[in-house]
């Protein structure tokens, strides 16, 4: 089980001091092997929550447990070893590192051509065209995004928790279709806990459970059929900017 206990994360508001609370005393449990979708308004704190779990962001307070072990003080590498994987919302690019190199790093072994191809097929990429390309700026946004997802899939065998941050972003309809199938299969065939941050109804509706994160808080959780209708009710926030007189 993945457990977050009273996790709070703030950033300084401005030079004069003051704080913006990004995650506000979040406590939640996610059962092993479940398929959970995290959704909510832009800026609500979803990515920050994922980064806190991966160790990319250090919370001000609170603890994180994986299968009863307190992983709060572990760095990113150690959490990766402990079985957490995270696919970035905005993946970085690497000059001189090929798709196959990157997937091999992820899988922790030199991947055979077939293995790399297999992973790429799962994200709707034609493998032979891509495995020897560098993960640099020559790849399109959607291509980089799908390669990023493949790096997480490459770790499925050795991971306990897989987190995907808006896997649908920038991805065409055909690949999106392939991707939803990949997530379903992953859920059926592996024991991994799958956490997908998403705004897509298609992905939300195939989840076991949906967590709604808004304003840095877990504001609602439940079955997709219960959560989806309530989204219409989320109140619109007034703009707080003070205008110069």
């Amino acid at each position: 089980m993945l457990r977050l206990q009273n996790v709070t994360f703030t950033v300084p508001q401005n030079e004069k001091g003051g704080k913006n609370t990004i995650l506000d005393d979040v406590t939640l449990d996610i059962e092993d092997g479940s398929y959970v979708v995290v959704t909510g308004p832009n800026g609500g704190g979803k990515t920050t929550l994922a980064k806190v779990i991966m160790g990319l962001v250090k919370p001000d307070s609170g603890r994180i447990f994986l299968d009863g072990m307190d992983i709060s003080s572990l760095d990113v590498t150690a959490r990766s070893e402990a079985g957490i994987s995270y696919g970035f919302q905005q993946p970085p690019r690497f000059k001189g590192i090929t798709v196959r190199d990157l997937l091999s790093i992820a899988a922790k072994r030199k991947l055979k051509k077939e293995d790399a191809c297999h992973l790429l097929t799962k994200v709707g990429l034609c493998a032979t065209e891509y495995i020897n390309r560098e993960v640099d700026t020559s790849l399109s946004g959607g291509e980089v995004k799908r390669i990023e997802i493949a790096t997480v899939l490459a770790r499925a065998e050795t991971s306990k928790v897989l987190i995907f941050d808006e896997p649908e972003a920038g991805i065409d309809l055909w690949s999106f279709h392939r991707l939803t199938k990949t997530f379903r299969e992953l859920h059926e065939e592996s024991n991994c806990t799958i956490i997908i941050i998403s705004h897509q109804e298609r992905i939300i509706s195939q989840a076991d459970e949906v967590l709604l994160i808004a304003d840095g808080k877990l504001s609602l959780r439940g079955k997709p059929e219960d959560i989806l209708p309530s989204i219409d009710d989320v109140e619109e926030k007034p703009c707080m900017v003070e205008m110069d007189k």
Partner: peptide, 25 residues
Amino acid sequence: DQILKLMTLGLTAEEAEEKILNGLL
């Protein structure tokens, strides 16, 4: 974020740096 990405794949910060430099060169 290049270093951090490679760390999420299990490399240490030093190993990540080396991979990035070797890739470039």
